[in-house]
Design a protein around this nucleic acid. Structure first.
Length: 270
DNA sequence: ATGTGTTCCTGTCCGC
DNA sequence: TGCGGACAGGAACACA
């Protein structure tokens, strides 16, 4: 989205329904039209578009949300804009002929507008933990943060207040690589194993980003291409399949923890 | 204070 | 083909 949006003016905004997960901001279209996007940023799983008006558009894709870019210029030709599809909820026409369409079948996604200088205090952002790829997420931080917690490590790592940006797939994959059972209480993991977990989390995320994400069903990269990290899954979505650890005779198990599937090898992960 | 289950919504897939 | 149920990449919220 950055090359299409950053530095450009939103010429037209169409809000095709009043709500996603929550009501959309008051007069959203009017507040977007005519605004130049001064920067496109990210915090955790939130996309942030700073506007010249001093407001920031906050976007979360939820489970099924996606942003389609159309009309990108190819040489001197423009691709035509496709007809609106089912669940196309917000359509932004950008200076230069490109169009940004937010589509979200399940409507677990969200958008809000908030003053840029108060973004850190926004109710969805204020309590987020450190970025997993940033310097504030380090071994001593995680040890301290998990100390005394009786919740399973799976739930702790999915908690965006502990570390922000991990989802179900990447928690499962990181715990497998770390040899930690998703059922283990967070406060009962040795410091040495938590130390090892930190770079593993960074590795899993970095590799997944490099691979363009994980396309299980409808996930696509920004350019519409499939991600291919799903081919590197060792446990996620592999229930009943053999464990890939050399010499391990185990089988990948699926359990449900706090309403989400956890996949793991009970032989390798303790 | 923490931990767990429910809820929001639509689409897809699987077994019968 | 149709139907019911399970499940899906998230996370706020109500309640124990």
């Amino acid at each position: 989205m950055q090359p299409v949006l950053e530095g450009r003016v939103i010429e037209r905004a169409e809000v095709r329904r009043p709500d996603l997960r929550w009501p959309l901001p008051e007069r959203m279209a009017e507040r977007l039209i005519g605004q130049r996007v001064t920067a496109l940023r990210r915090r955790s799983k939130y996309i942030l578009a700073d506007l010249a008006s001093g407001e920031t558009l906050v976007i979360h894709l939820g489970m099924s949300g996606r942003i389609l870019i159309s009309g990108a210029q190819m040489g001197r030709f423009h691709h035509p804009h496709p007809a609106p599809e089912k669940h196309d909820h917000i359509v932004l026409d950008i200076e230069g002929g490109t169009r940004i369409t937010f589509n979200d079948a399940r409507r677990f996604g969200a958008m809000d507008l908030t003053p840029t200088d108060q973004i850190e205090d926004h109710w969805l952002i204020a309590n987020l933990g450190p970025e997993p790829l940033g310097n504030a997420f380090h071994e001593d931080y995680l040890i301290e943060r998990l100390r005394g917690r009786r919740t399973p490590i799976k739930a702790a790592l999915l908690d965006q207040r502990v570390v922000s940006g991990l989802g179900n797939i990447y928690v499962c994959e990181a715990l497998f690589r770390a040899g930690i059972s998703p059922k283990r209480h967070a406060g009962r993991i040795s410091k040495a194993r938590i130390r090892a977990l930190v770079p593993i989390i960074r590795d899993v995320l970095s590799e997944a980003i490099e691979a363009g994400g994980s396309s299980l069903r409808d996930y696509r990269q920004a350019d519409g291409e499939l991600g291919y990290f799903q081919h590197a899954f060792r446990v996620y979505d592999r229930e009943g399949a053999p464990c890939t650890t050399p010499g391990c005779a185990g089988t990948i198990t699926r359990i449900v923890q706090s309403g989400r599937s956890s996949f793991y090898c009970s032989q390798c992960q303790r």
